[in-house]
Design a protein around this nucleic acid. Sequence first.
DNA 1: ATCCGGCTTCACGCATCCTTAATAAAACCT
DNA 2: AGGTTTTATTAAGGATGCGTGAAGCCGGAT
Lengths: 231, 231
Amino acid sequence: MSETILIAEDDADIQEILKLYLENAGFRVIRAADGNQAFEKICSEHPDLALVDIMMPGMNGYELTKRVRAKSNIPIIIISAMNADSDKILGLDIGADDYITKPFNPLEVVARVKSNLRRFYQLDNVQQNGSDLLRVGALSLDPKKFSVTKDGAEIALTPTEFKILMMLMEHPGRVFTKMQIYERINGEYFESDDNTMMVHISKLRDKIGDDSKNPVYLKTIRGLGYKIEDI
Amino acid sequence: MSETILIAEDDADIQEILKLYLENAGFRVIRAADGNQAFEKICSEHPDLALVDIMMPGMNGYELTKRVRAKSNIPIIIISAMNADSDKILGLDIGADDYITKPFNPLEVVARVKSNLRRFYQLDNVQQNGSDLLRVGALSLDPKKFSVTKDGAEIALTPTEFKILMMLMEHPGRVFTKMQIYERINGEYFESDDNTMMVHISKLRDKIGDDSKNPVYLKTIRGLGYKIEDI
DNA sequence: ATCCGGCTTCACGCATCCTTAATAAAACCT
DNA sequence: AGGTTTTATTAAGGATGCGTGAAGCCGGAT
Protein backbone atom coordinates (compact mmCIF):
# COMPACT_ATOMS: atom_id res chain seq x y z
CA MET A 1 0.00 0.00 0.00
CA SER A 2 2.38 2.71 -1.13
CA GLU A 3 0.95 6.19 -1.32
CA THR A 4 1.27 8.35 -4.39
CA ILE A 5 2.78 11.81 -4.20
CA LEU A 6 2.51 14.40 -6.94
CA ILE A 7 5.40 16.84 -7.35
CA ALA A 8 4.44 20.04 -9.14
CA GLU A 9 7.74 21.79 -9.74
CA ASP A 10 9.29 23.29 -12.86
CA ASP A 11 12.91 23.07 -11.73
CA ALA A 12 14.14 19.69 -12.95
CA ASP A 13 16.88 19.44 -10.33
CA ILE A 14 14.60 20.04 -7.40
CA GLN A 15 12.08 17.68 -8.92
CA GLU A 16 14.74 15.02 -9.16
CA ILE A 17 15.95 15.44 -5.60
CA LEU A 18 12.43 15.24 -4.22
CA LYS A 19 11.64 12.20 -6.31
CA LEU A 20 14.78 10.47 -5.09
CA TYR A 21 14.07 11.06 -1.44
CA LEU A 22 10.39 10.30 -1.63
CA GLU A 23 10.86 7.06 -3.54
CA ASN A 24 13.55 6.11 -1.12
CA ALA A 25 10.98 6.57 1.64
CA GLY A 26 8.66 4.15 -0.12
CA PHE A 27 6.32 6.49 -1.95
CA ARG A 28 5.20 6.32 -5.53
CA VAL A 29 5.98 9.61 -7.27
CA ILE A 30 4.36 11.28 -10.24
CA ARG A 31 5.55 14.58 -11.62
CA ALA A 32 4.27 17.70 -13.30
CA ALA A 33 6.30 20.60 -14.65
CA ASP A 34 3.59 23.22 -14.49
CA GLY A 35 0.27 23.99 -12.88
CA ASN A 36 -1.98 22.83 -15.69
CA GLN A 37 -0.25 19.50 -15.98
CA ALA A 38 -0.43 19.14 -12.23
CA PHE A 39 -4.15 19.80 -12.18
CA GLU A 40 -4.79 17.20 -14.86
CA LYS A 41 -2.74 14.59 -13.08
CA ILE A 42 -4.43 15.25 -9.79
CA CYS A 43 -7.78 14.70 -11.48
CA SER A 44 -6.76 11.63 -13.46
CA GLU A 45 -4.39 9.85 -11.11
CA HIS A 46 -5.73 10.89 -7.72
CA PRO A 47 -2.47 11.16 -5.79
CA ASP A 48 -2.66 11.02 -2.01
CA LEU A 49 -0.75 14.26 -1.53
CA ALA A 50 0.60 17.10 -3.67
CA LEU A 51 3.82 19.06 -3.29
CA VAL A 52 3.28 22.34 -5.10
CA ASP A 53 5.80 25.04 -5.96
CA ILE A 54 4.44 28.57 -6.00
CA MET A 55 6.44 29.80 -8.94
CA MET A 56 5.46 27.78 -11.96
CA PRO A 57 4.85 28.65 -15.60
CA GLY A 58 1.23 28.76 -16.63
CA MET A 59 -0.98 28.26 -13.63
CA ASN A 60 0.93 29.09 -10.49
CA GLY A 61 0.74 27.26 -7.19
CA TYR A 62 -1.86 29.55 -5.75
CA GLU A 63 -4.29 29.11 -8.62
CA LEU A 64 -3.64 25.40 -8.60
CA THR A 65 -4.42 25.12 -4.92
CA LYS A 66 -7.68 26.96 -5.37
CA ARG A 67 -8.78 24.82 -8.29
CA VAL A 68 -7.85 21.60 -6.57
CA ARG A 69 -9.65 22.65 -3.42
CA ALA A 70 -12.84 23.12 -5.41
CA LYS A 71 -12.78 19.40 -6.14
CA SER A 72 -10.73 17.60 -3.58
CA ASN A 73 -9.41 17.75 -0.05
CA ILE A 74 -6.10 16.01 -0.58
CA PRO A 75 -3.26 17.44 1.48
CA ILE A 76 -1.34 20.13 -0.36
CA ILE A 77 2.10 21.23 0.72
CA ILE A 78 3.27 24.52 -0.70
CA ILE A 79 6.92 25.08 -1.55
CA SER A 80 7.87 28.74 -1.61
CA ALA A 81 11.03 30.76 -1.99
CA MET A 82 12.52 32.10 1.19
CA ASN A 83 12.25 35.76 0.34
CA ALA A 84 8.86 35.66 -1.25
CA ASP A 85 6.32 38.20 -0.21
CA SER A 86 5.34 37.31 3.30
CA ASP A 87 1.67 37.93 2.70
CA LYS A 88 1.78 35.31 0.02
CA ILE A 89 3.45 32.89 2.32
CA LEU A 90 0.91 33.48 5.01
CA GLY A 91 -2.01 33.53 2.63
CA LEU A 92 -0.96 30.35 0.93
CA ASP A 93 -0.31 28.68 4.16
CA ILE A 94 -3.93 29.19 4.95
CA GLY A 95 -5.20 27.58 1.81
CA ALA A 96 -2.72 24.75 1.77
CA ASP A 97 -2.16 22.23 4.53
CA ASP A 98 1.48 22.97 5.03
CA TYR A 99 4.31 24.96 3.58
CA ILE A 100 8.04 24.57 3.17
CA THR A 101 10.50 27.32 2.34
CA LYS A 102 13.33 26.99 -0.14
CA PRO A 103 16.05 26.06 0.32
CA PHE A 104 14.78 23.03 2.13
CA ASN A 105 16.16 19.89 3.64
CA PRO A 106 14.82 16.95 1.61
CA LEU A 107 14.54 14.84 4.71
CA GLU A 108 12.31 17.42 6.26
CA VAL A 109 10.12 17.33 3.19
CA VAL A 110 9.75 13.58 3.59
CA ALA A 111 8.89 14.05 7.25
CA ARG A 112 6.26 16.61 6.43
CA VAL A 113 4.76 14.46 3.74
CA LYS A 114 4.41 11.60 6.18
CA SER A 115 3.05 13.87 8.86
CA ASN A 116 0.42 15.35 6.58
CA LEU A 117 -0.66 11.98 5.25
CA ARG A 118 -1.06 10.65 8.74
CA ARG A 119 -2.93 13.71 9.90
CA PHE A 120 -5.21 13.60 6.90
CA TYR A 121 -6.24 10.01 7.36
CA GLN A 122 -6.70 10.41 11.08
CA LEU A 123 -8.90 13.39 10.47
CA ASP A 124 -10.80 11.42 7.91
CA ASN A 125 -11.44 8.66 10.41
CA VAL A 126 -12.62 11.05 13.03
CA GLN A 127 -15.07 12.56 10.61
CA GLN A 128 -16.41 9.16 9.67
CA ASN A 129 -16.86 8.03 13.23
CA GLY A 130 -18.45 11.19 14.52
CA SER A 131 -21.82 12.64 13.68
CA ASP A 132 -22.41 15.31 11.08
CA LEU A 133 -22.77 17.99 13.70
CA LEU A 134 -20.04 20.56 13.80
CA ARG A 135 -19.41 21.57 17.37
CA VAL A 136 -17.30 24.35 18.82
CA GLY A 137 -17.89 25.22 22.43
CA ALA A 138 -21.57 25.77 23.00
CA LEU A 139 -22.18 26.22 19.31
CA SER A 140 -23.32 23.39 17.13
CA LEU A 141 -24.11 23.50 13.45
CA ASP A 142 -26.01 20.92 11.47
CA PRO A 143 -25.17 21.17 7.76
CA LYS A 144 -28.10 18.99 6.76
CA LYS A 145 -30.75 20.72 8.77
CA PHE A 146 -29.29 24.10 7.96
CA SER A 147 -29.55 24.98 11.62
CA VAL A 148 -27.32 26.44 14.28
CA THR A 149 -27.86 26.23 18.01
CA LYS A 150 -26.10 27.71 21.00
CA ASP A 151 -26.66 25.87 24.26
CA GLY A 152 -29.55 24.16 22.52
CA ALA A 153 -31.28 27.38 21.54
CA GLU A 154 -31.83 27.87 17.86
CA ILE A 155 -30.15 30.81 16.16
CA ALA A 156 -31.64 32.13 12.94
CA LEU A 157 -28.99 32.89 10.34
CA THR A 158 -29.20 34.09 6.78
CA PRO A 159 -27.81 31.73 4.11
CA THR A 160 -24.62 33.74 3.77
CA GLU A 161 -24.04 33.89 7.47
CA PHE A 162 -24.63 30.17 7.70
CA LYS A 163 -22.11 29.42 4.97
CA ILE A 164 -19.49 31.58 6.63
CA LEU A 165 -20.00 29.96 9.98
CA MET A 166 -19.93 26.49 8.48
CA MET A 167 -16.71 27.20 6.64
CA LEU A 168 -15.05 28.40 9.81
CA MET A 169 -16.42 25.57 11.93
CA GLU A 170 -15.26 22.94 9.48
CA HIS A 171 -11.69 23.91 10.32
CA PRO A 172 -11.60 25.26 13.86
CA GLY A 173 -8.46 27.22 14.59
CA ARG A 174 -7.65 27.71 10.95
CA VAL A 175 -7.56 31.24 9.61
CA PHE A 176 -9.45 32.26 6.49
CA THR A 177 -9.00 35.52 4.63
CA LYS A 178 -11.99 37.58 3.68
CA MET A 179 -11.17 36.78 0.10
CA GLN A 180 -11.19 33.05 0.69
CA ILE A 181 -14.49 33.18 2.49
CA TYR A 182 -16.09 35.34 -0.11
CA GLU A 183 -14.86 33.22 -2.97
CA ARG A 184 -16.25 30.10 -1.47
CA ILE A 185 -19.58 31.72 -0.83
CA ASN A 186 -20.07 33.77 -3.92
CA GLY A 187 -17.76 32.32 -6.52
CA GLU A 188 -15.96 35.49 -7.37
CA TYR A 189 -14.27 38.20 -5.46
CA PHE A 190 -13.89 41.92 -5.94
CA GLU A 191 -11.66 44.19 -3.96
CA SER A 192 -14.63 46.04 -2.61
CA ASP A 193 -16.08 42.92 -1.04
CA ASP A 194 -13.83 43.19 1.97
CA ASN A 195 -16.25 45.43 3.72
CA THR A 196 -19.14 43.19 2.85
CA MET A 197 -17.46 40.40 4.73
CA MET A 198 -16.93 42.63 7.70
CA VAL A 199 -20.58 43.41 7.82
CA HIS A 200 -21.48 39.73 7.65
CA ILE A 201 -19.02 38.95 10.39
CA SER A 202 -20.39 41.76 12.47
CA LYS A 203 -23.93 40.44 12.17
CA LEU A 204 -22.81 36.90 12.80
CA ARG A 205 -21.10 37.98 15.99
CA ASP A 206 -24.23 39.77 16.99
CA LYS A 207 -26.37 36.69 16.48
CA ILE A 208 -24.12 34.19 18.19
CA GLY A 209 -23.59 36.57 21.08
CA ASP A 210 -19.97 37.44 20.51
CA ASP A 211 -18.50 40.76 21.46
CA SER A 212 -16.22 41.99 18.70
CA LYS A 213 -13.89 43.56 21.20
CA ASN A 214 -13.46 40.35 23.08
CA PRO A 215 -14.88 37.51 21.00
CA VAL A 216 -15.10 34.00 22.36
CA TYR A 217 -15.69 32.26 19.05
CA LEU A 218 -15.27 34.42 16.01
CA LYS A 219 -11.83 35.95 16.30
CA THR A 220 -10.20 38.56 14.10
CA ILE A 221 -6.64 38.09 12.94
CA ARG A 222 -5.71 41.58 12.01
CA GLY A 223 -4.31 41.95 8.51
CA LEU A 224 -5.28 38.40 7.67
CA GLY A 225 -8.81 37.31 8.28
CA TYR A 226 -10.97 35.40 10.73
CA LYS A 227 -10.99 32.12 12.53
CA ILE A 228 -13.17 30.30 14.99
CA GLU A 229 -11.44 29.34 18.17
CA ASP A 230 -10.79 25.68 18.64
CA ILE A 231 -12.40 25.14 22.02
CA MET B 1 28.38 5.73 10.48
CA SER B 2 30.84 8.58 10.73
CA GLU B 3 29.91 11.77 8.95
CA THR B 4 32.19 13.40 6.45
CA ILE B 5 33.25 17.01 6.84
CA LEU B 6 34.88 19.04 4.12
CA ILE B 7 37.36 21.71 5.15
CA ALA B 8 37.88 24.43 2.55
CA GLU B 9 40.79 26.43 3.87
CA ASP B 10 44.02 27.58 2.30
CA ASP B 11 46.02 28.03 5.49
CA ALA B 12 47.67 24.68 6.09
CA ASP B 13 48.02 25.20 9.84
CA ILE B 14 44.37 25.96 10.40
CA GLN B 15 43.43 23.09 8.15
CA GLU B 16 45.57 20.77 10.24
CA ILE B 17 44.15 21.92 13.53
CA LEU B 18 40.59 21.54 12.34
CA LYS B 19 41.30 18.13 10.91
CA LEU B 20 42.82 17.00 14.18
CA TYR B 21 39.92 18.09 16.32
CA LEU B 22 37.25 16.89 13.96
CA GLU B 23 38.80 13.48 13.52
CA ASN B 24 39.24 13.27 17.24
CA ALA B 25 35.51 13.88 17.51
CA GLY B 26 34.88 10.92 15.22
CA PHE B 27 34.36 12.63 11.90
CA ARG B 28 35.86 11.72 8.58
CA VAL B 29 37.64 14.74 7.11
CA ILE B 30 38.38 15.68 3.53
CA ARG B 31 40.27 18.81 2.60
CA ALA B 32 40.47 21.40 -0.12
CA ALA B 33 42.96 24.26 -0.41
CA ASP B 34 40.84 26.52 -2.60
CA GLY B 35 37.33 27.10 -3.76
CA ASN B 36 37.49 25.19 -7.00
CA GLN B 37 38.90 22.12 -5.38
CA ALA B 38 36.27 22.38 -2.66
CA PHE B 39 33.44 22.57 -5.16
CA GLU B 40 34.69 19.52 -6.99
CA LYS B 41 35.00 17.51 -3.81
CA ILE B 42 31.57 18.50 -2.65
CA CYS B 43 30.16 17.26 -5.93
CA SER B 44 32.16 14.07 -6.07
CA GLU B 45 32.35 13.01 -2.43
CA HIS B 46 29.11 14.46 -1.04
CA PRO B 47 30.33 15.46 2.42
CA ASP B 48 27.68 15.94 5.10
CA LEU B 49 28.86 19.41 6.00
CA ALA B 50 31.32 21.98 4.71
CA LEU B 51 33.53 24.37 6.65
CA VAL B 52 34.37 27.19 4.27
CA ASP B 53 36.89 29.98 4.70
CA ILE B 54 35.95 33.24 3.06
CA MET B 55 39.46 34.21 1.97
CA MET B 56 40.70 31.60 -0.45
CA PRO B 57 42.66 31.77 -3.69
CA GLY B 58 40.67 31.21 -6.83
CA MET B 59 37.01 30.94 -6.02
CA ASN B 60 36.36 32.54 -2.64
CA GLY B 61 33.92 31.41 0.02
CA TYR B 62 31.00 33.45 -1.27
CA GLU B 63 31.23 32.14 -4.76
CA LEU B 64 31.62 28.64 -3.47
CA THR B 65 28.60 28.92 -1.21
CA LYS B 66 26.48 30.30 -4.00
CA ARG B 67 27.50 27.59 -6.41
CA VAL B 68 26.97 24.85 -3.87
CA ARG B 69 23.57 26.24 -2.95
CA ALA B 70 22.48 26.00 -6.53
CA LYS B 71 22.82 22.27 -6.24
CA SER B 72 22.68 21.18 -2.68
CA ASN B 73 21.43 22.14 0.74
CA ILE B 74 24.19 20.66 2.85
CA PRO B 75 25.06 22.71 5.92
CA ILE B 76 27.77 25.26 5.24
CA ILE B 77 29.64 26.96 8.04
CA ILE B 78 31.50 30.10 7.05
CA ILE B 79 34.84 30.91 8.64
CA SER B 80 35.71 34.58 8.42
CA ALA B 81 38.27 36.97 9.79
CA MET B 82 37.27 38.87 12.87
CA ASN B 83 36.95 42.42 11.61
CA ALA B 84 35.20 41.78 8.36
CA ASP B 85 31.69 42.56 9.43
CA SER B 86 30.27 43.03 5.98
CA ASP B 87 31.78 39.74 4.95
CA LYS B 88 29.81 37.98 7.60
CA ILE B 89 26.59 39.54 6.52
CA LEU B 90 27.24 38.59 2.94
CA GLY B 91 28.01 35.03 3.89
CA LEU B 92 24.73 34.57 5.65
CA ASP B 93 22.83 36.32 2.92
CA ILE B 94 24.05 33.82 0.43
CA GLY B 95 22.80 30.87 2.35
CA ALA B 96 25.37 29.75 4.84
CA ASP B 97 23.96 28.06 7.90
CA ASP B 98 26.36 29.35 10.48
CA TYR B 99 29.50 31.39 10.82
CA ILE B 100 32.59 31.30 12.94
CA THR B 101 35.07 34.11 13.36
CA LYS B 102 38.83 33.77 13.40
CA PRO B 103 40.55 33.26 15.68
CA PHE B 104 38.35 30.46 16.92
CA ASN B 105 38.35 27.84 19.58
CA PRO B 106 38.60 24.46 17.83
CA LEU B 107 36.27 22.91 20.35
CA GLU B 108 33.65 25.47 19.50
CA VAL B 109 34.03 24.55 15.86
CA VAL B 110 33.40 20.93 16.69
CA ALA B 111 30.38 21.90 18.73
CA ARG B 112 28.96 23.95 15.90
CA VAL B 113 29.57 21.21 13.40
CA LYS B 114 27.69 18.78 15.58
CA SER B 115 24.91 21.24 16.18
CA ASN B 116 24.46 21.95 12.48
CA LEU B 117 24.54 18.30 11.56
CA ARG B 118 21.98 17.48 14.18
CA ARG B 119 19.76 20.32 13.10
CA PHE B 120 19.95 19.35 9.48
CA TYR B 121 19.76 15.60 9.53
CA GLN B 122 17.60 14.99 12.52
CA LEU B 123 13.99 14.48 11.60
CA ASP B 124 12.91 16.94 14.17
CA ASN B 125 9.62 17.15 15.93
CA VAL B 126 7.72 17.24 12.65
CA GLN B 127 7.63 13.52 12.53
CA GLN B 128 7.14 12.86 16.19
CA ASN B 129 4.05 14.70 17.19
CA GLY B 130 2.37 14.98 13.82
CA SER B 131 1.80 18.68 14.17
CA ASP B 132 3.99 21.27 12.58
CA LEU B 133 4.39 23.42 15.59
CA LEU B 134 7.64 25.29 15.70
CA ARG B 135 9.11 24.73 19.10
CA VAL B 136 12.07 26.35 20.81
CA GLY B 137 12.37 25.84 24.51
CA ALA B 138 9.10 26.73 26.16
CA LEU B 139 7.99 28.67 23.11
CA SER B 140 5.82 27.12 20.47
CA LEU B 141 4.40 28.75 17.38
CA ASP B 142 1.58 27.46 15.23
CA PRO B 143 1.74 28.96 11.74
CA LYS B 144 -1.78 27.93 10.88
CA LYS B 145 -3.47 29.26 13.94
CA PHE B 146 -1.25 32.29 14.10
CA SER B 147 -0.74 31.65 17.73
CA VAL B 148 2.27 31.61 19.97
CA THR B 149 2.38 30.07 23.41
CA LYS B 150 4.96 30.00 26.15
CA ASP B 151 4.55 27.19 28.65
CA GLY B 152 1.08 26.75 27.22
CA ALA B 153 0.03 30.35 27.85
CA GLU B 154 -1.07 32.27 24.80
CA ILE B 155 0.98 35.30 23.82
CA ALA B 156 -0.69 37.97 21.71
CA LEU B 157 1.58 39.26 18.95
CA THR B 158 1.05 41.75 16.18
CA PRO B 159 1.28 40.47 12.61
CA THR B 160 4.78 41.84 12.17
CA GLU B 161 6.01 40.44 15.43
CA PHE B 162 4.52 37.11 14.52
CA LYS B 163 6.24 37.05 11.16
CA ILE B 164 9.58 37.92 12.68
CA LEU B 165 9.31 35.24 15.31
CA MET B 166 8.19 32.68 12.78
CA MET B 167 11.11 33.47 10.52
CA LEU B 168 13.57 33.07 13.35
CA MET B 169 11.97 29.93 14.72
CA GLU B 170 11.94 28.27 11.32
CA HIS B 171 15.71 28.26 11.46
CA PRO B 172 16.80 28.15 15.08
CA GLY B 173 20.40 29.15 15.59
CA ARG B 174 20.64 30.84 12.24
CA VAL B 175 21.38 34.55 12.20
CA PHE B 176 19.25 36.92 10.16
CA THR B 177 20.17 40.49 9.38
CA LYS B 178 17.67 43.23 9.98
CA MET B 179 17.59 43.72 6.27
CA GLN B 180 16.73 40.11 5.62
CA ILE B 181 13.97 40.13 8.17
CA TYR B 182 12.53 43.37 6.95
CA GLU B 183 12.59 42.31 3.33
CA ARG B 184 10.71 39.16 4.06
CA ILE B 185 8.15 41.01 6.08
CA ASN B 186 7.62 44.11 4.04
CA GLY B 187 8.92 43.29 0.60
CA GLU B 188 11.28 46.18 0.35
CA TYR B 189 13.94 47.63 2.51
CA PHE B 190 15.11 51.15 3.19
CA GLU B 191 18.15 52.14 5.13
CA SER B 192 16.03 53.77 7.80
CA ASP B 193 14.20 50.57 8.61
CA ASP B 194 16.95 49.30 10.86
CA ASN B 195 15.52 51.13 13.80
CA THR B 196 12.06 49.85 13.05
CA MET B 197 13.33 46.32 13.35
CA MET B 198 14.96 47.09 16.67
CA VAL B 199 11.70 48.38 17.99
CA HIS B 200 9.92 45.25 16.86
CA ILE B 201 12.57 43.09 18.45
CA SER B 202 12.35 45.05 21.65
CA LYS B 203 8.61 44.55 21.85
CA LEU B 204 8.90 40.91 20.94
CA ARG B 205 11.38 40.38 23.74
CA ASP B 206 9.02 42.15 26.06
CA LYS B 207 6.12 39.90 25.11
CA ILE B 208 7.95 36.61 25.24
CA GLY B 209 9.54 37.58 28.53
CA ASP B 210 13.10 37.96 27.35
CA ASP B 211 15.52 40.40 28.95
CA SER B 212 17.56 42.13 26.27
CA LYS B 213 20.58 42.22 28.52
CA ASN B 214 20.50 38.51 28.98
CA PRO B 215 18.07 37.02 26.51
CA VAL B 216 17.19 33.36 26.62
CA TYR B 217 15.63 33.14 23.19
CA LEU B 218 16.02 36.20 21.05
CA LYS B 219 19.72 36.92 20.92
CA THR B 220 21.53 39.85 19.37
CA ILE B 221 24.55 39.21 17.22
CA ARG B 222 26.20 42.55 17.17
CA GLY B 223 27.04 43.84 13.71
CA LEU B 224 24.98 41.10 12.17
CA GLY B 225 21.44 40.70 13.30
CA TYR B 226 19.36 38.40 15.45
CA LYS B 227 18.82 34.74 15.99
CA ILE B 228 16.77 32.52 18.19
CA GLU B 229 18.73 30.15 20.32
CA ASP B 230 18.52 26.52 19.37
CA ILE B 231 17.50 25.02 22.69
C1' DA C 1 -46.83 46.54 -8.24
C1' DT C 2 -45.56 46.45 -3.66
C1' DC C 3 -43.50 44.54 0.22
C1' DC C 4 -39.75 42.43 2.57
C1' DG C 5 -35.61 39.93 3.82
C1' DG C 6 -31.12 39.80 2.77
C1' DC C 7 -26.96 41.43 0.56
C1' DT C 8 -24.15 45.32 -0.47
C1' DT C 9 -22.31 49.93 -0.21
C1' DC C 10 -21.06 54.07 2.17
C1' DA C 11 -19.38 56.87 5.84
C1' DC C 12 -17.52 57.61 10.08
C1' DG C 13 -15.52 56.34 14.51
C1' DC C 14 -12.43 53.56 16.78
C1' DA C 15 -8.67 50.51 17.79
C1' DT C 16 -4.44 48.72 16.62
C1' DC C 17 -0.20 48.66 14.71
C1' DC C 18 3.90 50.55 12.28
C1' DT C 19 7.04 53.99 12.06
C1' DT C 20 9.69 57.92 13.40
C1' DA C 21 12.49 60.43 16.37
C1' DA C 22 14.87 61.25 20.45
C1' DT C 23 17.40 59.53 24.21
C1' DA C 24 19.75 56.05 26.92
C1' DA C 25 22.64 52.16 27.27
C1' DA C 26 25.78 48.91 25.72
C1' DA C 27 29.67 47.20 23.01
C1' DC C 28 33.54 48.09 20.45
C1' DC C 29 37.90 50.30 18.88
C1' DT C 30 41.97 53.00 19.46
C1' DA D 1 39.50 55.95 29.37
C1' DG D 2 37.21 58.45 25.68
C1' DG D 3 34.96 58.57 21.47
C1' DT D 4 32.36 56.06 18.13
C1' DT D 5 29.23 52.84 16.53
C1' DT D 6 25.57 49.82 17.32
C1' DT D 7 21.60 48.49 19.87
C1' DA D 8 17.57 49.26 23.26
C1' DT D 9 13.81 51.80 24.88
C1' DT D 10 10.20 55.01 25.12
C1' DA D 11 6.70 57.99 23.59
C1' DA D 12 4.29 60.37 20.00
C1' DG D 13 2.34 60.78 15.54
C1' DG D 14 0.31 58.69 11.43
C1' DA D 15 -1.29 55.08 8.59
C1' DT D 16 -4.06 51.20 8.13
C1' DG D 17 -7.56 48.08 9.03
C1' DC D 18 -11.80 46.89 11.51
C1' DG D 19 -16.71 47.53 13.22
C1' DT D 20 -21.13 49.14 12.70
C1' DG D 21 -25.28 51.84 11.79
C1' DA D 22 -27.91 53.45 8.06
C1' DA D 23 -29.24 53.75 3.47
C1' DG D 24 -29.61 51.69 -1.14
C1' DC D 25 -30.33 47.77 -4.06
C1' DC D 26 -32.04 43.49 -5.74
C1' DG D 27 -34.98 39.53 -6.24
C1' DG D 28 -38.54 36.56 -4.58
C1' DA D 29 -42.96 36.37 -2.41
C1' DT D 30 -47.45 38.20 -1.49
